[in-house]
Design a protein around this nucleic acid. Sequence first.
RNA 1: UGCCCGAUGGUGUAAUGGUAGCACAAACGACUCUGACUCGUUUUGUCUAGGUUCGAGUCCUAGUCGGGCAGCCA
Length: 599
Amino acid sequence: MTVEPTEPASPAPSDFIRDIVAQHVAEKRYPKIVTRFPPEPNGYLHIGHAKAICIDFGIARENQGQCNLRMDDTNPAKEEVEYVDAILDDVNWLIAGWADHCLGLKAKGAKPATSLVAGQTDYLLTAAAPGTPAARLEPFFASHYFDQLYAYAVRLIELGKAYVCDLSPQETDEYRGAPDRPGRNSPFRDRSVAENLDLFTRMKAGEFPDGARSLRAKIDMSAPNMWLRDPLLYRIRHTAHHQTGDTWCLYPLYDYAHCLSDYLEGVTHSLCSLEFTDHRPLYDWVLESLSLPRPLPHQYEFSKLRPTYTLVSKRKLIQLLNDGVASGWDDPRLPTLRGLRRRGVPASAVRRFAIGAGVTKFISSTEIAVFEHAIREELNPLAQRRLAVVRPLKLVLTNLAPGEVLECTAVNDPQSEQPTSRPMRLTREVFIESEDFAEVPPPKYFRLKPGGEVRLKYACIIKCDEVVKDAAGALTELRCTADLTTRAGGPNVDRKVKGTIHWVSATESFPAEVRLYDRLFTVPEPDADGDFLKHINPRSLEVVTARLEPALKDAAPGQFLQFERLGYFVVDPKDSSSAKPVFNRTITLKDTWAKAGEK
RNA sequence: UGCCCGAUGGUGUAAUGGUAGCACAAACGACUCUGACUCGUUUUGUCUAGGUUCGAGUCCUAGUCGGGCAGCCA
């Protein structure tokens, strides 16, 4: 099983949004802090969403509050149940052991309850009680509020604050004007309440085709903020919805549905990304226009997380899939939560990265190195050490007899306070990493070279006597002698040599497919020139047949491993089987030697 | 010639009128049976110009630069 620390190592962060929340808590403005994470079920979650999740859930958990998972599903044309399930799964993975106790889900099929608050009809849907079996829970859905949303729309009409408009989509655009040019009033703007009510009822009844009419807020067509120029509240769509089926042909738009969904759930702080800043006055307008009896939620915006060397645009991710660059939403090279999970990135590392990026309104990109560092930081204490040779080079220990076996002891978890160990068997023929031998060594090369010595990790020091090549001049094997006095327990255990390399026995190891993943793009900003496909890293995936030490036979999916001196690895949860094991490289170890070579 | 948001080392972020700090990255060194980890040292910063103030990264004004907004998408 996957082991996850329950708390992030870093202290609770502070930022401008948390400052506001703290202030509200101090004022006791709300009975309880409630946030929400509102994905649209039209795609998979990625690392960018992880930041939103960490903020939404983080603030809830720091304030003994709750964060509702809500499907923002007001556009039936784009959304599917497949995504609903995947999103729930990904969120559960990301917050497991960290904020699962404040995940707000509702009882299956539950709808908002109607009550009288301060003499006014009010609707409220709260999360299911803790302890409710998971099978009886589901996320919140904006689509489950369609009745209440409709009732609020009627109230808006009665208040003279909304009207049915017969302008076509094209005409609506023309009437809206431009940022530097005021719009014009719709000719339908001053319909009577009775006529609006009649028309709206008939829109709901399905009397009109798509786009024929819409319900609009009556605000100000000359407002400098485009979103206040009588924005649409409802549009007609004769399309089945994954939750409500054919019940509706009238669907609310985001700006209308979102603020009210927040209110309906008792959300207090509605946190979203910067592009919604211009919508905030509309968010407030809708709620304030309705004179609602309970405290209103407020929207606060922050900047998105944008790591370098990758892409977090749904559209571009889909293009990678369609072009066959990626094998699916769970391709380990993708920044999707599914891809990351399959790659072997622990949820705690995603959180550490997302939280560490901070919360501001400054549009920035975060170096992927910060993420890679977070992954290593989390994995280092978690990963069991193993020996594996990814590009095998045969090496014969000439002073060992064929069939002779030298028992060694290898450490599993050097970072632990009480490290455990496992046996390894050194034999006459072993494999070492091709990279660990150089016939013509560069300066400061610590590894094996002709006539040179190196330690075989956990075994003994060896000396390279002979380099054997085939007729074509290609290296075929190395012939070495082992200094058995340097074995554990031997008189010269402590003899120092500059290099230590990993190895596996040629006869005891087994072959396995290893997928060596690297960054998907070769440049920090793949889409800077609008042509990200040009910058795909041709070596983002390299498949090799490696030789693994016998203990790796028992490796289970979800178990974090370190192949010493190579990097962190996991069993591929999808393609691996005991007959044909497959390992994914999550990330290499930091490699200052390779870096030196680049210069 | 509209409205809104933003600007602190290479990157990200803190400092809430009082010593510009942290992380990553980079460089060097120590340690090392992982060229990992760990530890130590170092380089690099308040967009510009005015103003308020004993004192400004912080407040004010103007400018510059960057971003968002004209979906019946979210």
